[in-house]
Design a protein around this nucleic acid. Structure first.
Lengths: 227, 227
DNA sequence: TTACCAGACATTGTTAACAATCTATAATCA
DNA sequence: TGATTATAGATTGTTAACAATGTCTGGTAA
């Protein structure tokens, strides 16, 4: 009889990761232990463990005696993250072209439709989540959990970077670029898929503007409660 | 006046990571909280934090109510890890070919000499460390800390895999293959460097034998004390 | 006004005691 | 003998109190 336990730390970590991915939690936000204990109605020790896990995800910086803060990527970090994404997503995409079955292709089409719908309704929060979700879905189809885990991390950091440096501009993946990649995968055209993906990632990176500064932010509980 | 603090958790984490990288700590070893507290002469809370960080490195599995264990990669994990290494080290190597300056090339030559010396003396522990160190050095020369960090993690997991599944066989990187890569980098021959690196990584992977089973192990304190 | 300092307040870090769970030993029964 | 179950010990999980550090306010003097 399985207990199907749901460790409390995992809930905290996932909530914060989701909030970062959705750009509800912005770079530089302080993650106070008391505040998080209140929000998740738990002991400070749990929060502490969760924060050290998030540090391992590289999306939280821990300053001794001063607390934990959502990481603030530098321009150099941004370049490195996007280069890493190109390296990893290239292999993921090659896997996807080879391994995608009928169900996977259907999932991709459904995802494109959902993205389209969200944009049609001007639903920005959902559009952000689906935009990231496309890359995550590709990683699942690639069937390499090691690479998928790294991509998870890199897309989190991408969210922080985009929220910091590309507020007005290319804040979302261009939808037609996603569609082109899906078409190439369905056609088993590896070369075209890889080329389109590389171009797509460079477009995202090109949308960031480092001269824009960072606005500080508050409202931790609102960012985490929301969904 | 800097305090140059050296957080205790960091010491514990680094010691265990080093022990794993050097194959002193083997897959499946139990990491008891009391045992580690004794070894590092510290509070159990520190050990607890260190273990949760190591979980983030994917080299420690945490079983609720049963403790922490050095991860035991499956054959599938092994395939995924090596594919990830090929993806990441390809980009790292491309960077290295472009960015290596005179000092970097000298460092590479010095490293090859050190590897040669260790082999000449049949100093297996040092040879293991240097074998991994070559790939880490390449990553430093590539100047992308994000990729370097992932390679750190992947080489750790490679150490566990090799210790588990390739005991007798290809337990070390072939030295001449490292030398060939260095020569290609020095000649700024990107194509040759990438090709040699890919072949090298496939050779390492080919050395693992999944039919061999895992021997359990003990001697935690000896593995960590040693150096 | 501005710079500096002292104190109160809030936050993080540390420790120990207690509770819950698991594991290994030994006794019981078929 | 072999399997099962109780019990004791060890290990992990949880909590609260206390200590150390950082931050902020208000006041003082140049």
């Amino acid at each position: 009889m399985e207990t199907m336990d749901k460790p409390l730390e995992t809930l905290i970590v996932d909530s914060i990761l989701d909030a970062i991915a959705d750009q509800r939690l912005r770079a530089g936000t302080k993650l106070g232990e008391q505040a998080l204990s209140d929000i998740f109605d738990c002991n400070r020790a749990h929060v502490r463990r969760a924060l050290s896990m998030l540090t391992g995800w590289q999306v939280v910086d821990h300053l001794p005696n001063r607390g934990a803060y959502v990481a603030t990527p530098t321009p150099q970090d941004a370049r490195d993250v996007f280069q890493a994404r190109r390296a990893i997503e290239t292999t993921i995409c090659r896997n996807a072209v080879r391994l995608a079955d009928a169900q996977d292709l259907a999932d991709l089409q459904a995802h494109l439709a959902a993205e389209d719908a969200a944009r049609g309704q001007d639903n920005r929060p959902v559009a952000i989540r689906l935009s990231r979700g496309f890359h995550i879905l590709l990683a699942r189809i690639g069937r390499n959990p090691v690479l998928a885990r790294y991509l998870d991390e890199l897309t989190m950091r991408s969210s922080l970077i985009i929220g910091l440096y590309a507020q007005g501009h290319a804040t979302l993946c261009a939808e037609d670029e996603h569609a082109g990649i899906v078409a190439a995968i369905a056609a088993r055209d590896e070369g075209r898929a890889l080329s389109l993906l590389d171009t797509h990632l460079r477009h995202i990176e090109a949308g960031i503007r480092f001269d824009d500064a960072l606005p500080v932010t508050g409202a931790l509980s609102a960012a985490l409660r929301g969904r």
